[in-house]
């Protein structure tokens, strides 16, 4: 009869300990983080000052959906983000194959060169593009020599934004595709080859289906990160070429259109969280694919 309360109290103390360890961080997140997100929601439905009606309004959302300039910005964002995904796929898939399959001594160097930018100052690197693309640079002079026109180079064009975003987000694609290949057995390709498959059909019919979840989740991650990025668009695109993220930044800090900025931010939040959830979901399926592959090999 003495054991039961002892167990209960130890269970209680375990629970108390676990929540005590989490308490400071949870408190911080509930106030600063969730509190802040609620503030954005409130801003987005807040009645603009000077308008004489109490309560909430959907006017800011109507403003966003009805505005032609915003429509153009959304289209430009989609276009540039898709181009960025394409750029990351073109360079990222070969790198992911190389660092997971090759036994070359260059492997470590390739991995370091392509993946270290994950941690290397993003804003510092943007100034590299400014130096390379701006007026007076080799690229600007080269473009002028080839096509004539003003010697302004690539700076402040959509091409500059796409190059900057691809450079920024390439590591995410490589990581995603490489981890989907982590359990890919080169033996499977060899088996297919020995059974008479051509290298191309091995790539398309054996490898692609296995790494497709990695490609998809990489594409979703790169797409959402490029739609929300505003530093690259601000510094390489400049005014007149703003993407959704930069437009939100301008609305809040420059134009003082708090309501419209907040409404746009809420819409972006919903879309990006949905895309990220989808990316995580395909990541989960990726593990299932792996398990299936492992089971198939086992039998």
């Amino acid at each position: 009869m003495q054991v039961a309360p002892a167990i209960r109290s130890s269970r209680l103390s375990r629970r108390a300990t676990s929540l005590l360890l989490l308490a400071p961080t949870t408190l911080l997140y509930l106030t600063v983080y969730l509190g802040g997100l609620v503030m954005v929601l409130v801003m987005s439905i807040d009645v603009p000052p000077g308008v004489d009606s109490g309560g909430a309004t959907l006017a800011h959302y109507r403003d966003v959906f009805g505005s032609a300039p915003i429509g153009a910005i959304v289209l430009r964002t989609l276009r540039d983000s898709l181009a960025t995904v394409a750029g990351c796929l073109l360079l990222g898939v070969p790198v992911a194959r190389y660092i997971t399959a090759s036994a070359s001594r260059w492997k470590g160097i390739v991995l370091m060169a392509v993946l270290s930018p994950l941690m290397v100052s993003a804003i510092g690197r943007i100034f590299g593009w400014i130096a390379l693309f701006g007026p007076g640079s080799v690229i600007a002079d080269g473009l002028t020599a080839l096509f004539g026109g003003k010697p302004t180079g690539l700076l402040y064009t959509e091409a500059a934004i796409i190059i900057g975003l691809t450079n920024l987000l390439l590591p995410f694609m490589v990581l995603s595709v490489a981890s989907s290949r982590a359990h890919f057995e080169e033996d499977m390709s060899k088996a297919a080859l020995s059974l008479g498959a051509t290298p191309l059909s091995v790539l398309l019919q054996v490898e692609l289906p296995l790494i497709f979840p990695g490609i998809l989740s990489g594409a979703l991650i790169v797409f959402s990160l490029s739609t929300t990025n505003f530093v690259t668009a601000a510094l390489l695109g400049g005014s007149g070429r703003d993407l959704v993220g930069y437009e939100i930044y301008l609305d809040i800090l420059v134009y003082f259109q708090q309501g419209r900025g907040a409404a746009l931010a809420m819409l972006l939040l919903v879309v990006v969280v949905a895309l990220m959830a989808l990316a995580i979901q395909t990541g989960v399926q990726r593990h299932e694919v792996r398990d299936t592959a492992a089971r198939t090999r086992g039998t």
């Binding site: 802040g36 954005v40 931010a265 990006v272 969280v273």
Partner: peptide, 13 residues
């Protein structure tokens, strides 16, 4: 998963 720009606006407000 949440855009940092949205977190930033929230904390600013």
């Amino acid at each position: 998963a949440v855009p940092h720009i949205v977190i930033g606006i929230g904390i600013l407000q």
